[in-house]
Amino acid sequence: MSWYFKSLGKRKIIEFIIFALFIFFFLGPLINLALLAFSGKWQFPAALPQSWSFTWWKFVLSQPEILKSIGLSFLIAIVVTVLSIVVCVPAAYAFARIRFPLSKWFLFSFLLTNAFPKMGLYVAIAVLFFKVGLMNTFMGVVLIHVVNTLMYMTWIPAASFKNVHKAQEEAARDAGAGPFRVFWNVTLPMSLPGIIVASIFTFLSSLDEAQGTFMVGMPDFKTMPLIMYGAVQDYPATAGAVFSILLTLPTIILLFVSRRFVSADVMSSGFTMK
């Protein structure tokens, strides 16, 4: 066996150790979570659970409050995504194509909602929402989520629109297409990867949002992350594990489906100020 390690050389062995550590720290907690969620009995010294069971899955999925929260979370995430697209994509197009005074500062201002401590911002918004009667309403929750997604949904599509050259749009006009057809057939398909990536991030961040929902949506609008806080405190760790898998599953599925579009290029071009 030792001849094998010798033939590998020092470099390879160090690389292997670093890789193993990475896997351990990155995947370790996830594997532990997965094991925990399906375990019936798992006591300390054992490396693997002594018995497997679906007990906690049954428990979690039979709680009407939890099921309701899952439905609500997805509903809110869908509405937030659609609303963000409707509001932000045209804005992104404007930022990319029309030169107006202070456009850079407007674009930059979207960063503010992500740069400051969120709680301060939410309290300020909550005060406002009280006045206009948006507290504890569906619309209020949706709006507070949109505050968070403005940045992705404007920056990333704006960069994608900018990557569509004017000559490409003009060539389409020249070929006989009106402005709307040009947008539909040329500009939009060419910037679609950026818009899809931004939409996925919007969807996921809405699914994950807890602070703002807690401020604005309580007590009637309990989303998955909010229920999670309670679940972790009130039930054994196993229930928490089941729950966190339920919460991460959509993320993993979405990222997997969209891996064709999600690239470092699309992301980084979205976060370059031009």
């Binding site: 000559a167 060539a171 020249d174 297409a177 040329v186 060419m190």
Partner: peptide, 17 residues
Amino acid sequence: PPEKRPTAMVFQSYNLW
């Protein structure tokens, strides 16, 4: 507008979709 004119243009670059 450009789409109604009997002209066709070849640009310096980025002509194609």
